[in-house]
Design a binder for these strands. Structure first.
Lengths: 353, 353
DNA sequence: CAGCTCGATTTTATCGATAAAATCGATCGC
DNA sequence: GCGATCGATTTTATCGATAAAATCGAGCTG
C-alpha cells in the first residue's frame, strides 16, 4: 500500500481540514491558519509542531473555502485568441506558457476563456468578476481604441496588457494602465543596422498598412536607421517601402513589386515572419537578404533571420506588475519596454557587390 | 451613470447574493437556489418571479461558495506543454482553443498548469485535486508506458486523453480509459491513395524511428495502401522508407537520401509537416510530390499538401466524454476514433511521366 | 371527514477557511 | 506590587451557497 507520491494521505476517506490538523497539533484551528498565512504571529515551537502535523496528514487548504472567505481566487484570467495565421500565434503560445509557469511559481493559476470580439471579452470579464472566478487579467493584442482597457480601469480591476495602449489613430496613448511591451522600432532598427554593417545600402521595408501601431513602429525603426546612415531622400524611402496585409501570399506579391521597382533593394526588412516567408519565395535564388520579425518556429525551420521578442521575460514582467496591483489597494501603473534581439540566420548574407 | 454592459448592478457596493434575490422575490434563499439548480421543483409562477428578481439585480452565483458546498469546481485542468518545435505545437494550440470554447459553452472552465515531466505532472494533479481546484483532466501527448493515465485511473479521477494509450513497445494497449484520437493510418493511407490516383507509383515514406506509436501508425497506413495497390516487395517497401527525428533539417537530409537511392521516389509521404518542409527543400525544383501531416499553418503558408486532423471535433468529443464521466458515478470508458482529411495543395502534383 | 399523499416551500445544518475580537499569562514600568 | 502592555492563542462570527429534513396546505381516498 505504499504510494508513489509522497504525502499520499487520506486512506481514511475523509478530507484533511484545518480542524484535523489543529487536533493533531493540539492547537486551535485559527493557529493552524496563522501558521500558513501569518507565521510571525506564532511561537517557533508551535510553528514547528503544526508544520509537522501538516506534513504528516498531508494537509492542503481547500481553495474554495479560502476564496469564499477572502474574496480572492488567486487566479489570473486570460483570453485565448483564435489562432489567426498560426505563424504569429506561436508568440502568444510561448507567452501563455511562460505566464502560466511564472504564475504557478508565484502561487497563482491561469484560467482561460474565449471571446469573439472585444465586447464579448468584456462580457466575459464581467462574468468572471461577478463570480469571483479571477482576481486579475492579462490582456494581449492591444489595439487602437481598445475598449477593454478603459472598461477594466473604470471597474478598478487589476490588469496588465502585453502590448502598449494605442490611440484610434495608431499613435501611442497614455491611458495610465500597466503594460509590458517590446520595443518594435528598436527591433527593426537593429535588423536594418545589421544589414548596413553587412554592406547593404538599398534596404527595403515590407510591412502592414499604416495605422496599426505595432506595424507603424516597425516601419519607423527601419526608416530612422536608414535615414541616419544613408543619403536616401524621404521620397526614395517611401519608394523602398511596401505595404500589404499580413500573409505569405501578399508578402510574396509585395516583395516581387519591390524587386521590380526602380530602386531594386538588396535586402528586405519585414514586419512579420509571414511576410518574410513570402518575400523569400519572391526572392528565390537571387542574393537578396530577408529579415523577418517574431522569430517564430517557422523562421528557425527555414533558416530565416528574424527579430526575436523576449517573450518569457515579457511574461514574467507582466506577472510581476500584476502582483504589484494585487498587493496594493492603490493603482500605481508601471511599464516595461523590452529590447528585442536580432537572430541572424542564412537569409541575411552580406551584400553581393 | 448608464453603463455599457447590461445588468451592470451593484451601485450600492454590496454583493448581490441569494439572500438579496430571495428578499426581492419574497421567497426563501433555498427557493432561489432551486430555481437555478432544480427548476422542476418550483411552481411556474414562483419561477418567473424569481427569474425576474435575478435579472433585475443582476445576480450571479459566487462560484467559490457553490464549490465549497458541492465539492465541485466545474473546472477542467490541462497541462500546457512546452512549445517543442512550435510547428506541430500549433495543433495543440488549436485543440486548446476549441476545448476552452466547448467547455465554456457547457458551463465549464479550463485551467492551465505546466510540468517538466510526467512525474511532475502527476504531482500537479495531486495538488489540484487536493485543493479541489479541478474536477477533471484532459491529457495530451499520450505515449508508451504513460504513468499519468494509470495514476488517474487508480485515483478514480475523471479524465479523457487526446491520443490513444500506447504500450511501452509502441503498440496500442487497452488501459480502459476514455480517449479521443485521430486515425493516423487512415491519414497516410488517404495521402498515399491520392498520390496513386495521380499516377505516382514509387511513393516513399519519411517518418520517425519505430516505437513511437503515432509514428508507426502513420507508416503503416502508407505501407498498406502501397502494398495493396502495387507490386512492390516487402524489401522494396523498406527501401522506400526513411526514419529520422522530427525536424526540418533531419527531414531534408533523409529526403535527400531517399532521392539518391536505388528506387528514386516520385512522391514522399511524411509523418509531419516539419519533415515535409525539410523534404521540400531537398526536392527543390524537381517534380517530386510531398505530403505532410497535421496541416499546420506553415503548411498552408508554403502550399504544402498535408493531412489535417479534425482538431475542433476532437476537442468537443473530449469534452463530451468528460461530461459523461462527470455526470455518472460509475466509470464507463468510451472512445472516439476520428478520420483525418487530406488537404491538397501545390506540393502534390500528378506524376511527371 | 380523518388520514394520507404529494408538491411547494422553508428551516436547519454544513461545506472549510479567515477576520476580528476576546482571552490569558507573562513581563514591565514606576 | 498593581495596572498597563504585549505576545500568543483561542473564541466567535462570517463568507454564500446547497443538501437534507421539516413544514404546510391542498387534494385525494375510503
Amino acid at each position: 500500500m505504499s504510494d508513489d507520491t509522497q504525502g499520499e494521505q487520506d486512506t481514511s476517506g475523509s478530507r484533511v481540514t484545518l480542524e484535523s490538523v489543529a487536533k493533531r497539533a493540539a492547537v486551535s484551528r485559527q493557529t493552524v491558519s496563522n501558521v500558513l498565512n501569518a507565521p510571525h504571529r506564532v511561537r517557533p515551537m508551535t510553528l514547528q509542531r503544526v508544520h509537522s502535523a501538516i506534513a504528516e496528514l498531508g494537509y492542503r487548504p481547500l481553495l474554495a473555502a479560502r476564496q469564499l472567505r477572502t474574496q480572492r481566487s488567486r487566479i489570473i484570467g486570460l483570453r485565448l485568441e483564435p489562432v489567426r495565421d498560426g505563424i504569429n500565434g506561436a508568440v502568444l503560445d510561448r507567452f501563455l506558457h511562460a505566464l502560466t509557469e511564472e504564475a504557478q511559481r508565484g502561487g497563482y493559476r491561469t484560467m482561460l476563456f474565449t471571446a469573439h470580439s472585444d465586447e464579448d471579452e468584456i462580457a466575459r470579464y464581467s462574468e468572471l468578476l461577478a463570480t469571483t472566478s479571477v482576481d486579475a487579467f492579462v490582456l494581449t493584442s492591444t489595439h487602437g481604441g481598445d475598449p477593454r482597457t478603459s472598461w477594466l480601469t473604470r471597474q478598478g480591476v487589476p490588469f496588465v496588457s502585453f502590448g502598449r495602449p494605442w490611440s484610434d489613430t495608431g499613435r501611442l496613448s497614455d491611458t495610465g494602465h500597466s503594460w509590458v511591451d517590446v520595443d518594435n522600432a528598436q527591433g527593426t532598427r537593429a535588423a536594418t543596422e545589421y544589414l548596413l554593417s553587412q554592406g547593404h545600402r538599398r534596404i527595403a521595408f515590407l510591412g502592414w498598412p499604416a495605422g496599426s501601431g505595432v506595424g507603424d513602429e516597425r516601419r519607423e525603426g527601419w526608416r530612422r536607421a536608414l535615414s541616419k546612415a544613408t543619403a536616401w531622400s524621404a521620397s526614395t524611402l517611401v519608394a523602398l517601402s511596401a505595404e500589404t496585409t499580413d500573409s505569405v501570399e501578399h508578402g510574396a506579391e509585395a516583395a516581387a513589386g519591390l524587386l521590380a521597382a526602380k530602386y531594386r533593394p538588396t535586402a528586405i526588412v519585414c514586419a512579420s515572419d509571414s511576410l518574410a516567408i513570402g518575400a523569400l519565395s519572391a526572392v528565390a535564388a537571387e542574393p537578396v537578404a530577408v529579415v523577418g520579425f517574431d522569430d517564430t518556429p517557422v523562421a528557425a525551420a527555414l533558416g530565416l533571420s528574424s527579430v526575436a521578442q523576449p517573450v518569457e521575460r515579457a511574461a514574467s514582467d507582466c506577472f510581476e506588475l500584476l502582483l504589484g496591483h494585487l498587493g496594493a489597494t492603490s493603482a500605481i501603473s508601471a511599464n516595461r519596454l523590452l529590447k528585442p534581439e536580432l537572430v541572424v540566420r542564412r537569409t541575411s548574407p552580406a551584400a553581393a557587390g
